[in-house]
Write a protein that binds this DNA or RNA. Structure first.
Lengths: 209, 209
DNA sequence: TTAATAATTGAACCATCGTTCAATTCTACA
DNA sequence: TGTAGAATTGAACGATGGTTCAATTATTAA
């Protein structure tokens, strides 16, 4: 009896893992479509087709299109917040740590396998879902800004408007989704390094002045 | 008779000027709605309401939503190309000229009265309309890149990847539409100056290296 | 093997949106 | 003043897209 219950619990776990796997598949398919089309013109039928399901099946796993977007952005932000956290354990200068964060940001956005959606506007999300994403995004932005300010405090950077400069930096990174060509000559990692190096040089200032 | 014909010609001019004025009103209203909502979720009813017209009336002046977007972007790009052209007559360094162009770019995007739409993707435009806008956008981007390269050639800048760096710059500028708060403490001109200065510092490099 | 439940399908439903249209009003001209 | 044509209205139309649903299939457990 106990064994049977244990067996049921084990198969329950397997069923749950299969359902969770299906959710992740749908999220990856959705992120690819969101990146290709933008949220507003990405359709549920196209997402379903991309995930090899029927449109109605999406609603077995999610409460609707907004929730799919929510989880896509949540996942992308987790990836970025993770990189931000790991930068704290990096040896090296603040510039090194910021490089780590900025390159991870670009990789996340341009990732063809995962097809991040973090660069998409949160306006499309309703009420409470939006609140969660905005809070996470603000934590990430705040973390990046703190690195910028920390560099200012230890003399590596000269920045008088960290809020605006941090947004200028993030804007540059996010806009890569608009122009990056997966078939192009540069890999995402290369683009990430080039842009990060340039953006950080702008923080270091012109020592000749 | 000749006088009557002349009078008719004069009133014909007035009628045409009034029609053209109406078109400009509609374009400004549309640009505000496009900026607020994005092209895809901006509706013709909302544009009509913003312009104090009925929805059907829009079609008296334009062939459809796509054409309205086309003219909005065309106008914004004309403003930016104009700034680029005028920068050629500027006295001063390449950095001065680039500052002029970048600040004009940001002002254009954040302009509350004109509500530019140049940062919007061109994907929404069909065939030939898109071709025209892409060509103009490419001319503008090419012009900005030539300034970046010119600074590299005369020693003001150190840039090894001008294509990517130019896109990083334009991305930073375009993204300001996402976060700029018209009710905020900074005016568009201030934001433009701060961001342009930072982006150009990144071009100048780290002379300590 | 059977029954219960989950997963899946794909068409239908309803709301929305771009666009058209018949009717009305306005303007310009004779 | 009357007429022709432009401008305008706002509802209707057809297409689209998010979502629901009845029916079917698959899976799991007894």
């Amino acid at each position: 009896m106990v064994q049977l219950l244990n067996n049921r619990s084990n198969s329950g776990d397997r069923v749950r893992r299969r359902a969770e796997g299906r959710r992740q598949e749908i999220l990856r398919a959705a992120a690819r479509v969101f990146r290709r089309r933008g949220f507003d013109t990405a359709g549920m039928r196209e997402i379903a087709e991309e995930a090899d399901l029927s449109p109605g099946n999406l609603y077995h796993y999610f409460n609707g299109k907004h929730e799919i977007l929510y989880f896509c952005q949540d996942r992308a932000l987790d990836t970025m917040l993770n990189a931000l956290d790991r930068s704290g354990t990096c040896a090296g200068t603040v510039a090194d740590r910021l490089t780590f964060v900025l390159t991870a940001h670009v990789r996340c956005i341009l990732d063809d396998m995962e097809g991040a959606a973090a660069h998409l506007a949160v306006d499309a999300l309703p009420g409470e879902l939006r609140g969660h994403i905005v809070a996470k995004r603000d934590r990430y932005e705040s973390g990046v800004r703190k690195l910028v300010e920390e560099g200012g405090q230890n003399g590596e950077f000269q920045v008088r408007e960290p809020v605006i400069i941090t947004r200028a930096i993030l804007g540059s990174l996010n806009w890569t989704a608009q122009w990056f060509d997966p078939e192009g000559r540069k890999a995402p990692g290369d683009v990430a390094e080039i842009i990060a190096a340039y953006l950080i040089r702008g923080l270091k200032g012109d020592t000749r002045a």
